[in-house]
Design a protein around this nucleic acid. Sequence first.
DNA 1: GTATTTTAAGATAAAAGGGTCTCATAAACT
DNA 2: AGTTTATGAGACCCTTTTATCTTAAAATAC
Lengths: 153, 153
Amino acid sequence: MLLSKSCVYGLRASLYLAAREQGEFVPIRKMSDKLEISFHFLTKILQQLTAEGILESFKGPNGGIRLKRTGSDVQLLDIVLAIDGSQLLTECALGLPGCGLKNPCPLHDKWAETRDSIHEMLEKTNLTELVHKGKAENLRLTTEGGFDILFDD
Amino acid sequence: MLLSKSCVYGLRASLYLAAREQGEFVPIRKMSDKLEISFHFLTKILQQLTAEGILESFKGPNGGIRLKRTGSDVQLLDIVLAIDGSQLLTECALGLPGCGLKNPCPLHDKWAETRDSIHEMLEKTNLTELVHKGKAENLRLTTEGGFDILFDD
DNA sequence: GTATTTTAAGATAAAAGGGTCTCATAAACT
DNA sequence: AGTTTATGAGACCCTTTTATCTTAAAATAC
Ligand code: FES
Ligand code: FES
């Protein structure tokens, strides 16, 4: 798989937050219910994103999680790097150490090109952009439900 | 990681075979030594490729493994599909079931495009092509050694 | 200050991927 | 035929990822 499950959950949760009112703290329990992700597992992932300064948390009643920056200021790449790290975008396709530093492998040129296109896609796509699209076309963030599930509280 | 370790080992081994004399059976033990892959693990992977009709095996003394078709007739995609299956090229970037069949996710359009570029790269690259390049520039198939390690018996 | 709501942190368990080992099978040579 | 060389097939183990559970800590409301 391109992205780890943790990373995918992180992306789904971030999109969910970006789709809600800016400034509103959303409890993790609510997110885990809506997005059909295990509460405890999601909690851990959100902790990583909070530690990286992408999300912000608040404890106690009326607490929860929200975006720290605006959705248009968070690129998919930020989330992928925070959770999966940079391996996908730096590693050798044949698993050899030091891609780009040492003598390359036969696949290097072609892979570097493909890898750059992945990098560019992640770097140039922000949350708000996807949320607009998702709202307009009622796309899904979960197995069944459309984007509208985010709003029926 | 884009490709599983098994898949990467399968690719390295296939490149090794394509670089050797067509028709020569190479013992797995020799390959595992040259390519620095565990013998038993490599054996399993090669069995998969043999079952898929990409490689051919022969038991007993002077036996081993060789390509069943010519190197120019084996695309990287064949090996990736045989070992990792088609998930990478068919799955939803957000891990939702039924990408392309059901209502898409917000990332679908962008991911489908990126995914196609991966698909195209794997589909249009054959073993012989990479072997030529590898021989000409003495590229590496292993941590340290160059392509020449394939030939000092 | 006590109860309630919520995140934080860490221990633990289940599942998957990666890797090892053993025995069986086939072919060749003597 | 028996020994040697080699793949085939399966059981087994280790590590990482994924997921769960338990306890702590913080903030609020009363
Ligand atoms: S060295 Fe293999 S992809 Fe760069
Ligand atoms: S539905 Fe998500 S990538 Fe196609």
